[in-house]
Design a protein around this nucleic acid. Structure first.
Lengths: 116, 116
DNA sequence: ATTATCGTTTAGTGTGTAGTATATACTACA
DNA sequence: TGTAGTATATACTACACACTAAACGATAAT
């Protein structure tokens, strides 16, 4: 499932229960042209920029980070986290590159429990 | 200290012990025009792209991730790590955003000791 | 029937990124 | 004094990104 198809699928699903999810209405809420959204959904144009992706994800109830990833991007907020302490986070991410999900999740829990 | 100044400082330092670190020689090794390197060092142009930054860092013995951060960038390798499991790493990074260095380092050590 | 809404088509714009190429000017030294 | 090495100035290129605007044809509602 690529970016455009997922957007269209989610939008149509939303539309089935709420007629405000037509392509035009959705585009209007997001603040883009209907033609642009149409082309994105059909994959005629590549995914939009971060701001538009975030608005779309929010509007359609999708995970922002996943949608950004599908678009080949990473949230600028996360980039800033890395840039603020590049050596530290570069090391951590490289170590975790091939760690299994549960190992990463374990770390998340540890941090969440405030172990410092 | 900004990107250009650090490059120039490091290059001049290297040049004091090895005359192959003139602007021209360095640019030639990196594979860019001397004029371009000059402008970058003086901040007349913004920092170069990832590839050139990496070559420069390597050539001058600087940390690649730090230099990328100074240029407002993050290694495409690390971006790929995040994009491969966006929910997981987005959560982790947001949790660690305001964690002190030693807490992050502790995690690095844990992972390094292979705790899974 | 007509007007409203729908998705799509066609054509084009502005901005940023990542450089190249060539010419000029300074400085030391042999 | 000329020439080798150094830095800087000026001008330009090529391409990707992130969209806008207007009109078109089909379908559905009033």
């Amino acid at each position: 499932m690529n970016f455009g198809k997922l957007i269209r699928k989610s939008r149509l699903q939303a539309q089935s229960g709420d007629k405000n999810y037509s392509l035009r209405k959705t585009a209007a809420r997001i603040g883009i042209q209907p033609s642009y959204l149409s082309k994105i959904e059909r994959g005629e144009l590549p995914p939009p920029g971060e701001e538009v992706i975030c608005k779309l994800a929010k509007d359609l109830g999708l995970d922002t980070d996943v949608m950004l990833a599908m678009a080949g991007k990473v949230s600028s907020e996360l980039l800033e986290v890395i840039r603020s302490r590049p050596e530290l986070f570069a090391t951590l991410l490289r170590e975790l590159k091939s760690a299994p999900d549960h190992a990463v999740l374990k770390l998340v829990r540890e941090v969440r429990d405030g172990e410092w």
